[in-house]
Design a protein around this nucleic acid. Sequence first.
DNA 1: GCCGTTTTCGGCCCGACTGTTTTCAGTCG
Length: 573
Amino acid sequence: MPIHNSDVSEILREVADLLEIEGRNEFRVRAYRNAAQSVENLSKDITELVNEGEDLTEMSDIGESIAEKIEEIVKTGSLEQLQEIRDRTPEDLAELLNIEGLGPEKVSDLHEELGIDSTEDLKEALDNDEVRELEGFGKKTEEKIEKNIEHELNEARTRLDRAEEYAEPLVEYLGELDAIDDITVAGSYRRKKETVGDLDILVTCSDSEAVMDHFTKFEDVADVIAKGDTKSSVRLKNDLQVDLRVLEKESYGSALVYFTGSKSHNIELRERALDYDLKINEYGVFPEGEDESVAGAAEEEVYKAVDLPFIPPEIRENRGEIDAARNDELPNLIEIEDIRGDIHTHTNATDGSNSIEEMARSAVKLGYEYIAITDHSQRVTVANGLNEDELREHMEEIEAVNDKFDNIEILKGIEVDILEDGTLDLSDDVLSELDIVIGSVHYKFDLSRDKQTDRYLKALDNPNIHIVGHPTVREINSRDPMDVDLDAVFSKALENGVHMELNASPRRLDLNDKHCKTAKEMGLKIVINTDAHSTGELHKIKYGIYQARRAWLEKDDVINTRSLDELREILKR
DNA sequence: GCCGTTTTCGGCCCGACTGTTTTCAGTCG
């Protein structure tokens, strides 16, 4: 089986986690984490690099020792060192670190004092009120663990970017087979939902037996769950289940509609079909009482049968798209080519990996007209946030680099921390000298709804703020959104000419699709940014575009589709 | 374990907050 970048980084992270629980040198632990991040950020395939004999120590945070380990992982699929550590320390202990509030020391205590080896053991201990008895633990800690443990158990859905990492090679592999004609990954994957439950692949072909053989022999397959003439199911080694369905050409379109979903979109569509005395199912469109399909080879046909235009998969969520289609009011959804610049990026001045110049060069390659450098402010100490003097120096540097480029404009910005009381982390003086000020929350996520809302409302009254970054601070599968009255925040933003960010990081996607749709309906403008911490992350803008399309956003709803001059005009308050 | 306008070993981000304590360890970002 080929080893993907995420496989390598996962192994390195597990080594780090277990070493940390064992109480090993924290810098050694961090070295493994940094290396994992470095592999994850890589835009190239790690297996390819190893096979081509590239010197991995050229990569940042990878030295001789870890380079050897990565080669071992790529060549053997596993790491002997990890096996040895697992023999000493139960591997399931590492998953406890994902529970917010539990760090290495507490996990170690739970293991040593209560013999807890897994999340299951921890649940049992919680039920028996054993945890609160431990020294260093109390009632509040217990409550916090109890609340956060559920997240870990519910992590069934796979993030879209992770699913893509497996789906794309699989589709390419299937495509190698001459017997296959059409191939589409349907389901929430096709609707570009932020997470997917499993993958549904539909194909048409001339030889289904050959297709099923080929499919079940895919190198990432860990388990063949079922293998038949029209449907086979496998589990990939990352636990993702994949169903492959072989279809007749004449029902490919109706099957696409059926398996792309969403379920409630399909129900709505079928109800509409009843008005036309038609029955829609995955095999076609059938007039009442007949068993001969009148449409179904292509999706367009199916929609046309009920007098509707084609509806883009991203908006098939039964959020009004069928009515809109009926009234010829479907949105003209934004495309990735519409984006003219990324205005939330970080450099090695704070916690990014690349220089201003490197970021700008990569932005040029993407065809951008502008890029804003928006590093962290002083409060975000962990990221080496800039104080006023450092920011002024940084601004001069940005200007100097900008002078070297005549094919892109590098804007001076900051991602300024919104403090607990709603004030900004830098003086109005220095903020007013910047092209772009993004206000973001990085601390105190658990204020009451009223306080959290007031915090934003006050921040938005600062005349220097242009954009609210990752407004809810949620992280998919790991951190809930803050409790905040977004309607009130949106209203204030609209009033004050502030724009809301759709953070395109596939880990965040914040605002989410629903929020963005609400914002649009209120007349608020969105900005889609990657929040890139390295040049390799700039291309993740596509996840923001997916989410924007799911939110019905059109080119005009997004301010970084504008030319530089127009953008500058929009940013004036 | 990585890194180096330091070539060989010392430094590596560190301040705020929480919950537990009663002066501080652990966790977070």
